[in-house]
Structure formats: structure tokens, C-alpha cells
Design a protein around this nucleic acid. Structure first.
Lengths: 215, 215
DNA sequence: GGACAAATTTGAGCAGCGCTTAGACCGAGT
DNA sequence: ACTCGGTCTAAGCGCTGCTCAAATTTGTCC
């Protein structure tokens, strides 16, 4: 036996090999193609080549599968924020800007993940399996940088929570407007290229924080 | 004929009287109770006391009903923003702050509307019936005030689009985090009372615009 | 090697859904 | 009085989430 646990797909065999992973990948594809509502466990099962009852041995129900995808998504978002900040200017405001740009980039590049991560059902009362709330990975990456910005005099002093919420809101708001909102469509109203919005908005935010707009 | 068009419900009669309106109200209730996914035309029909096929004489399909609700929602949002701004200090930054607070208040008070207004299916390619894109009512209320803020020297000069997007993102982001995101739940991570977040975040934003945080 | 237990998958089945169609019903205008 | 158009019903199609008993495979202990 050259392959002790064949973690990859065994085609032709009765047992799939790694159905759980295959279902997650198929689900992500379906969401990418048609939104969260386009995901059905039956379709995912069909794509994985198994019967319609098989998924329920790996996920209690549809919502649990979505929660598993959300967990993956938050991990990837955290990674993208880490990569962006470590490559950016260490100045506090530049770090915040890099966080925001990475956040928006993540939302546009991994739309399926983003949609799954921010749904009312996920954050609802004790729906999420994880130990800490879903957005914890974002919050904890903002705390230190906001405090640093405050100490540098580039953010209002006092309880940092307000400033954390503001920074998070900027990034999340633009992301939502781009992914689910009126900025998603090709209709005019705003001329700017959607690819440029993340950088433009976050740069404007930095400008204001630094006070560069006041002569 | 004392009642030319009996716009209200005629109970007991074969014809409902105003089924379209009754379906909209029932749908809003269902969404309020369990989110957009909890709305089914059959349930709404049941609540209105008609058969499961009746709704299709008033709405081509489920998505058209949701679009009708979204239209109502955008009108009410516009009203709330108008009321808030006319009651606020006419200074440009104060006006922007009032816009944002009204936006967040709307999202929290009319969660069902907010959820329906910002869904990918709605803003998708030519899905919305209206003449202008769904968010037009928000955009047009921001343009003048952002330009006024620029002229007052309280916002970065140049193309106002960046600043419009930033202001919109702040309000929309906090609203989304509160309605659909990790701020919705009772889990800690942030101590601030959710009722205070709208004012707190928008006030912080104003502070920064005015440059009050730089000694 | 062979038997047993655990894990995995199947296939049938239930209720609910969106949507369609044919037909029954009502109200208003000629 | 009668027709005609808008409104509603009832039945039905295919899809869905989810359950359950039975069938199949895999790993393990002797």
C-alpha cells in the first residue's frame, strides 16, 4: 500500500476518498457562479459524483457547510491582511491603509468567501462553531494599529473602539457596495473604475487621518 | 357605489381587494422574522389568506416582489436622510454626519428593508426595474454635501467621487456589520452598546474631517 | 487470513418551495 | 342581460433540505 490514507479522490471506488473537501470545493464553485442561494447540497453532491444523501455524513446541514466555508474565508482574509501589512510602510496610518486595501481586494477576488462570511445566519445567535466571533481575526489586526495611530496623533484619542469601528466600516462598506450593492453593476453613477476604488478610498481615508487636506 | 375602488381588504369576498399590498406587508413581516431566505411566496400567500398561485397575478416572480420592496426601502431611506439633514446643523461636515447617522438608524430600524435593498440579485445586471441604479437616492444626497465640505476645506480637494465613496462606505459598512455581520450578535469583542455605534462612528469621522484630532 | 465493527454511500421517501396551466369566479361596461 | 377582463383556485412539475433503513467498503483485532 503506497498511499496509506488516500486523502485525494479515488475515482471509481465506492468510497469517495475525501468527500468533505470535494463538497467544500464544489460549493465554492456554485456560490461563485450564482451566489449563496445557488448552492444546494444536491448540486454539490452531483458535482462530487455522489448521491444526494451523502453530504449529510460530513455536514449536519447546509448551514454547517456554509459555516465551514466561512471559517476558511476568515483565515484567508487574515493571511491577505498580514501579507499586505508586512509589505507596507510600517507607519500606523499606512498600515491601516494597507489593511483596508487588502480587505477590499479580498472581497473582490474571493467574492464567494466574502458572501458566505457576512450573512445574518452565520453571525446569528450561537450559529458559528468557532470559539471567538467570526470577525475576531479582523478586529485583532486593527486594534494595535489603531492604538499606534492614536499615539502618533493621527487618530482621535480616547477609547480606540470608535476608531477601530470606523476603520473596519470603511473597508467593509466599500467591499459590500462592490460585492452586493449598487457598485457591483455596470451602471454609471460613478465613473471611477471599480478596480481603483479600494486604493482610492483608502488613500482618501489616510489623507484625512494625516490631516493633509487642511492646507 | 360609496367605495369606488375598495383599496382595503374585503374579507370574505372572492376577490381580495388589495392583494398586492397585503403580499408586500406579509413579505416584510416574514423577512423581519427570519431574513430574506425565510420569505416564500407560498407563506406570504397563506398569511394573506389566498391560494399559493395567487401572488403570481401581482408579481411575475419572487425576485420582482423583492425589487418592489427594495424600491419602497430606498424611498424611506431617502426620507429619513432628508429629515435628519434638515434638522441638523447646516455646516457641510455636520450634514454628512447626519446623513450617516440616519443611514445607520434606517438599517437598524428597518432591517428587513435594508436586507432587501442590498442583495447581489437586486443590483445584478439589469435586474432592477427603476430608471436609475438602486443607490441613486443615496448618491445624489451625498454629492452636494461632499462638494460643500471640499469648498469649506474639510475634505480633500479634487474629484469628489473618492470622498463620496468614502462617506457612503463608512455608513454602509457600519450598517452591514450591525445588520448582517459580527456586530449583530451579542458576543463581546466590542464593548460599546450597539445603539451608540452609529453616532460614535459618525462623530469620529467628523472629528477627523475637521482635523480636530491633530491638537 | 477471517470475522466484526465503524465509517461511508445509496436509494427511497417526506414536506416544502417556485412557477405554470386550465379552469372557476366576480365585477364592471355596453 | 351579457360579455369580457381581471382575479383567484386547484392541480401538477421539478427542485430542494433532510431522514432513514439497507448495502457496501474499510480498518482492526484475533
Amino acid at each position: 500500500m503506497p498511499v496509506p490514507p488516500p486523502v485525494t479522490t479515488k475515482k471509481g471506488s465506492y468510497h469517495h476518498g475525501d468527500l468533505r473537501e470535494a463538497l467544500l470545493r464544489a460549493s465554492l464553485e456554485l456560490i461563485e457562479e450564482g451566489g449563496v442561494q445557488a448552492l444546494s447540497l444536491r448540486k454539490a453532491a452531483r458535482r462530487a459524483g455522489v448521491s444526494s444523501g451523502a453530504p449529510y455524513h460530513h455536514f449536519e446541514n447546509r448551514e454547517v457547510l456554509l459555516a465551514a466555508l466561512a471559517t476558511e474565508g476568515f483565515e484567508r482574509l487574515g493571511q491577505m491582511m498580514d501579507e499586505a501589512t508586512s509589505a507596507a510602510d510600517p507607519a500606523p496610518v499606512a498600515q491601516l491603509q494597507a489593511c483596508g486595501e487588502a480587505y477590499v481586494r479580498f472581497a473582490r477576488q474571493h467574492t464567494a468567501y466574502f458572501r458566505v462570511m457576512f450573512r445574518p445566519e452565520l453571525a446569528g445567535p450561537d450559529a458559528y462553531p468557532g470559539d471567538d466571533p467570526p470577525g475576531g481575526c479582523v478586529f485583532e489586526r486593527l486594534v494595535g494599529r489603531v492604538i499606534a495611530a492614536q499615539e502618533a496623533g493621527h487618530a482621535p484619542a480616547g477609547d480606540p473602539e470608535r476608531m477601530i469601528l470606523l476603520a473596519w466600516s470603511v473597508a467593509h462598506g466599500l467591499s459590500s457596495l462592490l460585492v452586493d450593492g449598487p457598485l457591483q453593476t455596470g451602471k454609471k453613477m460613478i465613473q471611477m473604475d471599480r478596480d481603483d476604488m479600494g486604493e482610492a478610498v483608502m488613500r482618501t481615508f489616510s489623507t484625512i487621518l494625516l490631516g493633509d487636506h487642511l492646507r
